[in-house]
Computed example of a mutant assay.
Amino acid sequence: MSFFGVLYYFLAVFIFGAFDKALTAVIQTQQTVLAAVGEDAEFSCQLLETKDVLQVTWQKISHDGEKNVATYNKQFGQRVNDGFTDKFKFKHTELQNCSIVIRNVMEQDEGCYHCLFNTYPEGSFTGKPCLQVYELHEPVVDVRESNSTEEWVVSCSATGRPAPTVTLSVSQQDLSFSQYNTVSVSNTNATFTVTTTAVLSGSRKHSTQVGCAARVLSAPHREVTVMTPVVQQKPDATEDGSYEKITSQSSESNFTWIIVLAVVSVVAVLLVILLVVFRYFFADFVAHFKQHNKTGDLEKIKTPLKSKQDIHENKTPLMNHENEQLRQRTSTKKTPKNINRKASPSTAKRLFEEH
């Protein structure tokens, strides 16, 4: 290539580059738009200079080039091209100011887009906003006891994409973290799990608030706070073992009281059961006795007393027969066998004369 050819090439690059910068300088747009997975992302472009705009065109930049996503003009209005109707929608439409929304952003939506203001006779003025998709889950905090009575071990894990930054905090100013340790693990779904562990110095007899914040890029952070549990420390044993003796005596005393209370409770329950059973059967017996007395009195009232004549008349024939035999025997003893009870007149006269 000749000297003039090289000079012409650099001159063309400089002129067209300057012209391209001039065209993009009048577009106001957000260079980087952050959106979490599942959220909506909004692109907005505004033409700062007054131009005769015929149409606004939105394009998605990919490895294969630019693809028209949607267009707006006064003659046909809003239009989203086929294949993008479920993903894109217009939010604000003007020829000088236009915005579009990407619904439910996913990892494949990440990249840069073009907003073109097609003017006459200058041509197109282009803006280039870019979408960056991130993922951030709520952090998980774990507080556990340390070997020392004056320390806690605090651990916080957060998962996101790209790798999140995990920060620990404590509410009390006189407490502080030390011995930081951070581990990052890459997951199969292109996310990262970052775990930060530190030692919190301070008395474990008092509860304090511990916080953990996770952040990805410049997106809003996620924070979780927990309260450390209070641990009651046992007193140290003396040299002669008095603490163990006191503890043993206290345990025996408590065990004795438990047995006494159990026995008293059982006796009380048995007494209550016996009382209930006695009252039930006693009430039944009294009711039966009263009913029996009432029945007997009524029978006496209903049955009149019998007279002696009725009793005599009501004797059975067997009794009458026995009485008759008894009278006959008595008469036989008083009267001799050779004397008839009825004497003839001649015999009676003779006996009378003899006497």
Score class of each variant (00 low, 15 high):
2 S>V: 05
6 V>L: 13
12 A>H: 06
16 F>E: 09
20 D>E: 13
23 L>C: 09
25 A>P: 00
26 V>N: 11
27 I>F: 11
30 Q>C: 07
31 Q>K: 14
32 T>W: 06
34 L>K: 01
39 E>F: 02
39 E>C: 10
40 D>R: 09
44 S>P: 01
47 L>T: 01
50 T>E: 12
52 D>C: 07
54 L>R: 13
55 Q>V: 14
61 I>Y: 01
66 E>H: 08
67 K>T: 11
68 N>I: 15
72 Y>F: 15
75 Q>C: 02
77 G>T: 08
83 G>V: 05
85 T>C: 09
88 F>W: 03
88 F>H: 00
89 K>M: 13
89 K>I: 04
92 H>Y: 14
97 N>L: 01
99 S>Q: 04
100 I>S: 00
100 I>T: 00
100 I>N: 00
102 I>N: 01
109 D>K: 02
109 D>A: 03
110 E>H: 04
114 H>E: 12
116 L>E: 05
117 F>E: 01
125 F>H: 05
126 T>P: 02
128 K>L: 14
128 K>I: 12
128 K>C: 05
129 P>E: 01
130 C>V: 12
130 C>S: 12
136 L>R: 00
139 P>W: 04
144 R>I: 15
149 T>L: 13
152 W>A: 05
157 S>T: 10
157 S>G: 07
162 P>S: 01
163 A>E: 03
166 V>M: 02
166 V>K: 00
172 Q>K: 11
174 D>G: 01
174 D>A: 02
179 Q>E: 12
182 T>D: 02
182 T>W: 03
186 S>V: 04
188 T>P: 05
191 T>N: 02
194 V>C: 03
203 S>Y: 00
203 S>K: 06
204 R>T: 13
205 K>E: 10
206 H>F: 06
217 L>Q: 08
219 A>R: 00
221 H>T: 07
224 V>Q: 08
225 T>K: 12
225 T>D: 05
230 V>G: 05
235 P>H: 02
236 D>V: 09
237 A>V: 03
242 S>R: 06
242 S>C: 06
243 Y>H: 07
248 S>E: 05
250 S>Y: 07
250 S>K: 10
251 S>R: 07
252 E>Y: 07
253 S>P: 00
256 T>Q: 09
258 I>K: 13
261 L>T: 04
265 S>L: 07
267 V>S: 14
272 V>D: 04
273 I>R: 09
274 L>I: 09
275 L>H: 06
276 V>N: 10
280 Y>S: 11
282 F>W: 07
285 F>H: 11
287 A>E: 11
292 H>P: 00
293 N>R: 12
293 N>Q: 14
300 K>L: 14
301 I>M: 10
305 L>C: 05
307 S>E: 06
309 Q>T: 10
311 I>D: 06
315 K>I: 13
317 P>T: 09
320 N>Q: 11
322 E>I: 14
326 L>M: 10
330 T>I: 13
331 S>T: 14
334 K>V: 11
340 N>T: 15
342 K>C: 12
343 A>N: 12
344 S>R: 15
346 S>Q: 15
347 T>A: 11
348 A>H: 12
349 K>H: 11
351 L>V: 15
351 L>A: 14
351 L>W: 14
352 F>M: 13
353 E>T: 10
